[in-house]
Design a protein around this nucleic acid. Structure first.
Lengths: 140, 140
DNA sequence: GTTGGTGCAAAGGATTTGCAACTTG
DNA sequence: CAAGTTGCAAATCCTTTGCACCAAC
């Protein structure tokens, strides 16, 4: 099942309406190869002769983030589709500092280790955010 | 040696001028207990009867970041003084989602493990950015 | 038909740039 | 005194809010 199809199913199952703007944002994120900002998405649509209000794009992205269908990449300030779909645990990124290409992964051992460190420092850990940067295979 | 003193020494040793605005931004960051934005710093100064142009604050923070004297906390969108000074390796954070309190640490084993994962996925790793969130001792 | 979603207008921040004037070493 | 910094003005971009209208279920 494709990313868009899966996302639509999740929307429906949670009681959210499956609207044209939501489908279009999903398709735009699907096509993107690097993290895209709300305005990037707006421009992508214009180039295809469509138009979406930027406020709508913001709101759709917020919703998709809250459902873990897309992620915000903080080091780049943009959004990407979730590439791990239902896989549990913290989703992490490798980001190419040259071309922006992104690879998503999750790793239980890492979560465990980070949680241990947090507890040792008096924290009760909840989430781990990791974005490693470097060079991807092609840019190396 | 205090954070401010250390930072001034680093500026000097790298050939940067030690100016009044730079010292004042350093002092503001020193006093902050949670990550602060450039405008936060501006307001902190006003409250003390001083004034700094926001553009200057942006530029000073950029410089201090590039020298690793302060860090940008992406999950909170603010800056903090570096609490590990010259300690090598990637600096990481625990951030309290309640009060914003922040603890900095570094961990060699974690760096190693993350690098391994990156290489297995075809990446040449350079930096690891980690910001775990949870509850600090007091907010728990 | 209802409820939730969207578009529009507008406001409020955040961030950047160019240039003249000033300060530090 | 020279080079590096700062302050100001202004432009640009990002993000959010309120409300009237519209579309999906």
């Amino acid at each position: 099942m494709s990313f868009v199809q899966h996302s639509i199913a999740v929307l429906r199952s949670r009681g959210y309406k499956v609207t044209k703007p939501r489908k279009e944002v999903l398709q735009a994120v699907e096509r993107a190869t690097v993290p895209v900002s709300p305005y990037d998405i707006g421009r992508m649509m214009e180039r295809r002769g469509k138009h979406l209000d930027h406020v709508t794009i913001y709101r759709v992205l917020d919703l998709l983030c809250s459902l873990n269908l897309v992620h915000k990449v903080l080091s780049r300030g943009g959004f990407v589709k979730c590439g791990l779909l239902d896989r549990p645990g913290c989703h992490r990124f490798l980001v190419c500092r040259q071309c922006g290409e992104l690879q998503e992964f999750s790793d239980e051992a890492l979560c465990y280790q980070e949680s241990q460190i947090a507890r040792n420092l008096g924290f009760q850990p909840e989430h781990h955010l990791t974005e490693s940067s470097g060079l991807c295979r092609r840019c190396r």
